[in-house]
């Protein structure tokens, strides 16, 4: 490890980059080793770790999952019952999804109750709102994918909720479904939203979020 790093550093002069990214003091009020209750300043980082875990387990689930009404349920059953560690990988992705949403929410609470959203961090709060919506979108779109009764009816209900939006509700609901009923087109849409559109959006907003954090530094204690 050390030698590989030395080799690369020798040629690419990585040291300044690494220092800029990793070598910055965490103030005492945000350092759980100094102030135990500063653990709440880790919530964002924990959420990020969970999101990385979701990305990794999700990539592997895609090795077997098929987003078609004919095969979705059978392919999930196959993962669950026949693939080695399949039930574990699936459980991690499922529990991780809930945990990620919980951590994002707790992180938002931390930001709110420490007043960290105030000037100059309003834009990061707004980026955060986008992240919240994206993470919930992951949950909603992923829930349909096993194509079992719970998935089907949860999505039917969720989309009917969208249909209650004044004026454009019905139109939005039809766009989400890809038609007037939850069916094959809905499943493919939700799958592609889950594995392509939302990850792309997530990366953009995470990059903005982290960039702003590094530019502004962590907020002062109350």
């Amino acid at each position: 490890m050390g030698r590989i790093y030395a080799f690369l550093d020798d040629r690419l002069n990585l040291e300044p980059l690494v220092r800029a990214i990793a070598d910055h003091p965490v103030p005492d009020h945000a350092n759980p080793l100094k102030t135990p209750k500063a653990l709440m300043y880790c919530f964002g980082g924990i959420a990020f770790m969970l999101i990385l875990l979701q990305i990794v387990t999700g990539m592997f689930l895609m090795l077997y999952y098929v987003p078609s009404p004919d095969h979705a349920y059978a392919s999930v059953t196959y993962i669950q019952d026949e693939v080695m560690f399949g039930s574990l990988v699936r459980a991690v992705h499922r529990v991780g999804a809930s945990a990620a949403i919980v951590m994002v929410f707790l992180h938002m609470m931390r930001v709110y109750f420490t007043g960290a959203y105030k000037k100059p961090r309003e834009l990061n709060w707004i980026a955060g709102i986008f992240l919240l919506v994206i993470v919930i979108g992951f949950g909603f779109s992923g829930y349909l994918l096993p194509w079992d009764q719970k998935a089907y009816w949860a999505t039917t209900v969720g989309i009917n909720l969208v249909a209650t939006v004044p004026l454009v509700g019905d139109f939005l609901a039809n766009v989400l479904r890809g038609g007037s009923e939850v069916g094959a087109l809905t499943l493919v849409r939700f799958f592609v939203i889950h594995v392509m559109f939302l990850p792309a959006l997530l990366l953009v907003f995470l990059a903005a979020h982290f960039f702003m954090i590094r530019r502004q530094g962590i907020s002062q204690p109350l």
Binding site: V56, F60, L63, E82, F85, G86, V89
Partner: peptide, 15 residues
């Protein structure tokens, strides 16, 4: 903890 299960997961159908 991730690598071992995920490797098994990936090669399982080939075994």
């Amino acid at each position: 903890a991730l690598g071992i299960p995920l490797t098994g997961f990936t090669i399982s159908s080939a075994l």
